[in-house]
């Protein structure tokens, strides 16, 4: 198939960016979206135009490195990561707009690459259980109710791609935060630090300039791992409890 691609190009963080239009012919529907961009880059390289920078690593939907705004939707029209989106979701003659994640907490580094280290900083501010190596009791010391273990797992599948932030009209990272708060809060091992964790992570979230949540729900529909909005409620509940406890 033949496509018209409108792609955001920006040389550096401080440079002014703009949309550029490219024509690409011979796209097969078996290609993944990123393979389609690989083909475009080969073509650009051959015609002495610098290839488009975009992030990807595992290309099997688990590492969270890829993430493009495709036709105004984070990761495109399907519920999956950009790398798992295939060209059979498009048709001959389509015009596709491709932009980077846009949030001031995620500055553009070049073209479609953004800096998501703000997500790491939130984890640094409490998104862990303090268990030094070697200090652990036997794994069977604390049984975990299956229901809780399953819920913890379901929300622990967050891949940290940032699609929730990209899709949120407020630029909030509440879904990301809520997923980690819920994961660790469901487990007995996560209880001792539960209230400090939520205060620490939320403060860092606000400090890094993410927006506040108004429960619109675009985040959950953009999430390739289908993390539900429940986790934001859980986040709020934990935050409220933590404030009552005076942390």
């Amino acid at each position: 198939m033949k496509l018209t691609l409108k792609i955001w190009r920006q040389a550096t963080t401080d440079a002014t960016g703009a949309m550029h239009t490219y024509q690409l012919d011979g796209v097969s529907e078996d290609m993944s979206f990123l393979e389609m961009l690989d083909v475009l880059n080969e073509q650009l390289n051959a015609s002495d135009e610098e290839p488009i920078a975009f992030d990807s690593d595992c290309r099997e939907g688990i590492c969270g490195m890829c993430g493009l705004m495709i036709n105004g939707q984070a990761h495109g029209p399907e519920v999956t990561t950009t790398c798992q989106l295939h060209m059979r979701s498009f048709k001959d003659g389509d015009e596709i707009t491709i932009e980077p994640w846009r949030a001031d907490a995620f500055p553009v580094l070049k073209d479609l690459c953004v800096d998501r280290s703000a997500l790491d900083r939130m984890i640094q501010s409490g998104g862990y259980i303090s268990a030094n190596t070697g200090s652990a009791p036997d794994a069977h010391a604390a049984p975990v109710e299956k229901k809780k273990a399953d819920r913890a797992f379901d929300v622990a599948t967050c891949i940290g791609c940032g699609a929730c932030v990209a899709a949120c009209p407020n630029g909030s990272a509440s879904l990301f935060l809520g997923a980690k708060i819920t994961h660790l809060g469901e487990l007995p091992q996560g209880q001792p630090e539960r209230w400090d964790r939520v205060i620490g992570m939320v403060s860092q979230h606000d400090h890094d300039g993410f927006g506040g949540c108004t429960n619109i729900g675009e985040c959950a529909s953009a999430c390739p791992k289908e993390i539900p909005l429940d986790v934001i409620s859980q986040l709020n509940k934990d935050l409220r409890t933590a404030m009552v406890k005076g942390r």
């Binding site: 268990a131 070697g134 009791p137 794994a139 049984p143 299956k146 994961h183 091992q189 996560g190």
Partner: peptide, 22 residues
């Protein structure tokens, strides 16, 4: 064996049986 203990202590949500054990 120590690895499993360590990971459980960190909050790795391994699959569990209905009795709550791994």
């Amino acid at each position: 064996a120590n690895i499993i203990d360590q990971c459980v202590a960190q909050g790795v949500p391994f699959a569990r049986e209905y009795g709550g054990l791994l």
